[in-house]
C-alpha cells in the first residue's frame, strides 16, 4: 500500500464507536452492520475518524501506541488492517485532487 495514500471515513458516515476492555465496537450506518474490532484496528479507525491520515502517519501512531519499532512489520500489519476496514466500508481512500 502506498505510504503517502491517505484514508478517511466515508464523508456521509458518522461512526458510533465504543471502546470496552481492549475491544472496539462500531456501527456502520452505510451498511447497517456492527463490527467488533481488536484494539489495534479500533485505534487505526479512531485516528482516521479524527481526520484523514496516510499509511505512514498511521504506522507512526501505531508504533508509538504499541511501543514497537516503526518498521516493515508494523507497516504490513497496518496495511492489513486498512484493507479490512476498507472492505467493511468503514474507511475509504481520499480522492486525489
Amino acid at each position: 500500500m502506498e505510504a503517502t495514500a491517505a484514508w478517511q471515513v466515508p464523508v456521509e458516515a458518522k461512526l458510533p464507536l465504543r471502546y470496552w476492555d481492549g475491544d472496539y465496537v462500531v456501527y456502520n450506518p452505510l451498511t447497517g452492520n456492527t463490527h467488533v474490532l481488536d484494539i489495534v484496528a479500533g485505534k487505526v479507525l479512531e485516528i482516521i475518524m479524527a481526520g484523514p491520515a496516510t499509511s505512514a502517519e498511521l504506522c507512526q501512531h501505531i508504533a508509538e501506541f504499541l511501543d514497537v519499532p516503526n518498521d516493515l512489520r508494523t507497516a504490513e500489519n497496518v496495511d492489513a488492517i486498512l484493507a479490512v476496514l476498507d472492505r467493511l466500508g468503514l474507511i475509504e481512500p481520499v480522492a486525489a485532487c
Binding site: 470496552w20 465496537v25 447497517g32 467488533v36
Partner: peptide, 17 residues
Amino acid sequence: DRAEAFRWLVDSTVNYA
C-alpha cells in the same frame, strides 16, 4: 468482558439488524 457480552447480547436479539 464487555465486547464479548455485546456480541452475545446482539446474537440474542430477535430484530437487532
